[in-house]
């Protein structure tokens, strides 16, 4: 058995229907090639390190699967074709990576914008006013004096 993972980056406007369609299509694909579908994870929306296809944000997904050595090349070709051709519109980048069979499944993933703690906008405005009110008044006075 060989283990693989594929990380793919989609456009930020991807809908839930499209995601479920991708997942079911992948399941079908893995069934055809007698592979086991281990996981399908959504990392969430993230700020990209550089704009891709003029998008500053993107949604990452990670899939992991196991195949027999004999069937691996055919499956990997199919997976690459699936992302590069069939999902040409929605998937911006994809990367197939081989995993260590003896290694653990755990991994560290980057924080997404959806995990970040959110604060109501009003509380943010209040704290900013308190911090800078004094200094901004000083600035105004300075201008008047000039």
């Amino acid at each position: 058995m060989l283990r693989y993972e594929t990380l793919f980056l989609t456009v930020p406007e991807i809908t839930l229907d499209e995601v479920s369609a991708i997942e079911s299509n992948l399941q079908k694909l893995f069934k055809e090639h007698v592979a086991t579908f281990v996981s399908f994870e959504r990392w969430g929306k993230m700020l990209l390190a550089y704009p891709v296809r003029k998008n500053d944000y993107g949604v990452y997904f990670l899939i992991r699967f196991e195949v027999d050595q004999a069937k691996a090349p055919a499956l990997l070709d199919a997976v690459r074709l699936f992302f590069a051709v069939k999902l040409n519109e929605t998937v911006m980048r994809h990367l197939v990576n081989k995993l260590d069979v003896k290694g653990a499944w755990e991994y560290q993933r980057p924080d997404s914008l959806e995990d970040a703690p959110t604060r109501p906008a009003e509380s943010f405005r209040d704290s900013r006013d308190n911090d800078h009110r004094g200094s901004s008044q000083d600035m105004n006075n300075h201008h008047l004096a000039d």
Binding site: L7, L9, L48, A49, Y50, V52, R93, L95, N97
Partner: peptide, 12 residues
């Protein structure tokens, strides 16, 4: 370099 192709890390 892998992270760079996936736009997880910057080239510059």
């Amino acid at each position: 370099k892998k992270a760079r192709t996936m736009a997880l890390m910057p080239y510059l």
